[in-house]
């Protein structure tokens, strides 16, 4: 998947968990919870759904890397199987 496709997928998963978020106004560099109403259980649900959607096994120790949109895109891009890139 391209970075743009991955970003669209991340936003789609975010909208499942917190549909009231305006994706267009998100600052990709800032942690979700510092800019939207998004608590730690939301985050847990988000990361689990992201793992299911992407088919990538996200280790719990890596969760902090997924705190922002940029972080998610960077992490998922790096974790993609090389053949699929």
């Amino acid at each position: 998947m391209s970075e743009a496709e991955i970003e669209a997928m991340v936003l789609e998963v975010l909208a499942q968990v917190a549909p009231n978020v305006d994706a267009a106004s998100l600052d990709p560099e800032v942690a979700f919870r510092d800019q939207i109403e998004f608590d730690s259980l939301d985050f847990l649900n988000f990361v689990i759904a992201l793992g299911e959607r992407s088919g990538i096994k996200i280790s719990e120790i890596d969760y902090p890397k997924l705190a922002s949109l940029r972080g998610c895109v960077g992490y998922l891009t790096a974790q993609q199987p090389a053949a699929a890139g």
Binding site: P19, N20, E37, L41
Partner: peptide
């Protein structure tokens, strides 16, 4: 489903709204 969930989160905040 998303519309209703979004409204509840908007009104109540994430800690109280349904997951």
């Amino acid at each position: 489903r998303r519309e209703i969930l979004g409204l509840a989160r908007e009104r109540l905040g994430p800690a109280v709204a349904p997951r």
